[in-house]
Amino acid sequence: MRKRLHTLLTLGATVFTVFLPELVRAAGPAAEMLIVVADSRRVSAGWGRYFVDSYNTNPLWFGLEVTIITALMGVTLGLITDQIMKRIGIDLTSRKIVEH
């Protein structure tokens, strides 16, 4: 039983990994091959320069950075705005489901 579950989970994970890019790709028209180099002359230092260098030298690392930062920003901003909403004084934990 456990072996069967393992097989199923592995199969599911493989299908998921293989097909997920298509799910994302379908969000917009397929982009043509494009090589873009960020111009580092206008950003001399700081985070801007860091991202430009990262973009120009290691695209995979840049992709990973963007994903992690986006997720972190989502969580952080979510928590901050959550606190702001709580201060309004409304109940943010329950709601009634009324269709009509």
Partner: peptide, 17 residues
């Protein structure tokens, strides 16, 4: 799907952070 999309489009150099 959005998080995966962020990674794949980021790696392709199509995201303005």
């Amino acid at each position: 799907s959005g998080l995966y999309g962020t990674f794949t489009y980021g790696a392709k150099g199509r995201i303005e952070i």
